[in-house]
């Protein structure tokens, strides 16, 4: 019996089944509860959310809004990646640079991405640049701090060995420091992608509010419109689910990338 149970649980289908079972039960409970409510209720139900998803996905602008948000996240993340990793390498390898910049970094870190929104809107207007700057700001800190951590812990012997083999400074950074710090940088990138995706929704919600649901676009703005103009909870839940699913997919992609980029760590 035990043997049979073990071999069953090791099958991927079984693992998927177990992962799906509880959400399915919750959905059923939710649907059962919703069917007890009066017909004119605003409360969302699974069946209505599914219908709303169909409407929004086919010609309702859901795909476009998701792609727009995703595009902003990617671009903002890339900006943060370049800035965070290069500054992180500098701060992680030089104690003097780190001593001088640390107070500035630590001073900004507690300021939440949303707290720079007013300035971002004033400077960049209620469009993509404002959203981008908030995403880049949010993603910058996890990348910077994890790069510093990884770079400062590079085995000194590996750098000395590179010097005895005649590698100039730029080659030591590219071929020793960055690969040695890559596990930390990848961890920072995953965290950064998570906060970037959170920040873009919040930023678009807020920018959407500022622009009166007009020009900013993206999933967050879509949610704001449903909230402010049609009070349609089913549509809002659709957006929430899309946010969650996209975040999950991005995280899975990162795990695959980690395995590809760091085959020596398996």
């Amino acid at each position: 019996m035990t043997v049979a149970a073990q071999s069953f649980s090791s099958r991927p289908i079984a693992a998927v089944a177990r992962g799906v079972a509880l959400p399915l039960v919750l959905l059923l409970v939710w649907q059962a509860w919703a069917s007890t409510l009066p017909a004119n209720t605003r409360a969302p139900s699974p069946a209505q959310v599914a219908r709303a998803f169909e409407t929004l996905a086919i010609g309702g602008g859901l795909v476009g809004a998701t792609l727009q948000s995703l595009g902003r996240v990617m671009l903002g993340f890339l900006i943060a990646l370049v800035l965070g990793v290069s500054l992180g390498v500098l701060m992680g390898s030089s104690r003097r640079v780190s001593r001088n910049l640390d107070p500035i970094v630590e001073g900004f870190r507690p300021i939440a991405p949303m707290a720079i929104l007013p300035i971002a809107i004033l400077w960049f207007g209620a469009g993509t640049p404002a959203a981008l700057s908030i995403v880049a700001y949010a993603a910058f800190f996890p990348l910077l701090l994890n790069t510093i951590h990884g770079v400062s812990r590079v085995d000194r012997k590996l750098l000395q060995a590179a010097r005895t083999m005649g590698l100039p400074l730029h080659a030591r950074i590219l071929r020793v420091v960055l690969p040695a710090a890559l596990p930390s940088i990848m961890l920072g990138a995953r965290l950064a992608m998570g906060v970037a995706w959170t920040a873009i929704i919040a930023a678009e919600l807020a920018v959407g509010a500022k622009s009166g649901g007009g020009s900013s676009g993206g999933l967050g703005q879509m949610m704001f419109v449903f909230y402010a103009y049609s009070i349609d909870l089913n549509n809002i839940v659709v957006c929430m689910i899309v946010v969650g699913v996209v975040a999950l997919l991005i995280d899975r992609l990162f795990r695959v990338a980690e395995r590809r980029l760091m085959p020596w760590r398996i």
Partner: peptide, 19 residues
């Protein structure tokens, strides 16, 4: 300073784990 004319083999080998 260090140079490739003098090769060093370190105590713990200093091999690059990602290579």
């Amino acid at each position: 300073g260090p140079g490739p004319d003098r090769g060093v083999m370190f105590q713990d080998y200093a091999l690059y784990p990602w290579q």
